[in-house]
Design a protein around this nucleic acid. Structure first.
Lengths: 213, 213
DNA sequence: TTTATTTTCAAACAAACGTTTGATACAATC
DNA sequence: GATTGTATCAAACGTTTGTTTGAAAATAAA
């Protein structure tokens, strides 16, 4: 019988593997992360991954958790504030999940990596996480600009917003070399969110006016 | 004596290697590109890379050519049109180099890959190509917004512009799954350039006004 | 305690990678 | 034609990768 009050040793190694995998995957991406480094940081034997998860890919899938990201959409959707303010809130929270290193949501950083380097489970990630939040932002933008712009133009607006946000994570190796002193502390994240929010709202307004002169 | 009128066989394999390397590197990035595939597409022996270039990394360096990108900056700088129009021109040309598959400038696509996955020569790429065009756009933006915004805010404006552009290349694996029918033909590239240009000019205007109410 | 099951471990495995080797073919010079 | 330097080739090298193995240790069941 499995003891439920005390955590078994087997469960401990499972959890340690998951914790280490989250760190290593988010730091190096799926392909560059090695099972040896994950096991070393989890202080378990190399064979543990295949014993508990059957493969590196299955371990990767097990670390995926889109709940905080999807919860962010639902949370932002509630409340009776304007669509503009909801978009600003979303950008702020999205950037926090994407950039804050102390935050316990490394999931967003997975996504940013998977954008460029497609792993075997990219289809699952797109379907379960990226598509919903893209759709969510598309709905917000539609609410802001009205029905005057085409679907193609709407898509470009959504890309503009995500492009600005993701750049900070995605281009970090370059940004670090261009601006070595730049750190993503809470103050900086708020400043970035404020910038992207104002920048984008002005952009959306301009696009709306252009399409209907 | 080396024949200069006719291209020697040795030169032929060198050129074929370079051509194949450009394709394979831009499609797969430095790390994922294999010397075996490069040689297969160049129809040369596997040892040819190390014989003619001494290593895979040196071959990669040999394929780098930032001239079209830097020429773009100088070309855009000339002329007596306004800074706004010059920024629009730059965005359009940058996107053409970044997205047009028929274009002979795969260099920009290198850069987009290197942003996320740092290769051994990232420092060189940043120093010789990315830093100059970042500085170029920063100067343009400074010309547009005047001296009313801080250096930090200026940097964020530049990131917003590049972030929007690079997203189309960088997030392509995801975009392809989100919008399977989307193709980067000349019409689409022009539409994207028009969108990002108007979106960004409106954003810059808003940022300027906010900083000096 | 004895037996059965589960978990750990060092070692090895097969595959893929960039690179090197030594023989062979080619071209140029004498 | 003989000799020398260059270029090509199949094969193998040494690493690193994820994965598997079979015995040993630990835990649970009898």
């Amino acid at each position: 019988m499995i003891t439920e009050t005390k955590v078994s040793l087997s469960e401990q190694t499972r959890e340690r593997l998951l914790a280490a995998a989250r760190v290593v995957f988010s730091e190096n991406g799926f392909q560059n992360a090695t099972v040896r480094e994950i096991c070393r940081r989890a202080e378990v034997n190399i064979a543990a991954i295949n014993y508990h998860f059957s493969s590196k890919e299955a371990l990767f899938v097990a670390t995926l958790n889109f709940e905080p990201l999807l919860a962010l959409c639902e949370k932002t959707n509630q409340g009776s504030i304007s669509a503009q303010e909801r978009l600003l809130d979303f950008i702020h929270e999205f950037l926090r999940q994407l950039l804050d290193e102390k935050e316990f949501s490394v999931q967003c950083q997975f996504m940013a990596r998977e954008l460029a380097e497609p792993s075997p489970v990219l289809a699952k990630i797109v379907q379960e996480a990226i598509a919903p939040i893209h759709q969510f932002v598309a709905n917000l933008v539609r609410e802001i600009v009205g029905k005057k712009i085409s679907e193609e133009e709407l898509r470009r607006c959504v890309f503009s917003i995500f492009g600005q946000c993701v750049y900070y994570r995605h281009a970090q190796p370059v940004i670090q070399r261009l601006h070595p002193k730049l750190r993503y502390d809470q103050r900086e994240i708020e400043a970035i969110a404020k910038h992207i929010g104002e920048f984008s709202l002005a952009g959306l307004k301009q696009i709306t006016q252009n399409q209907c002169p």
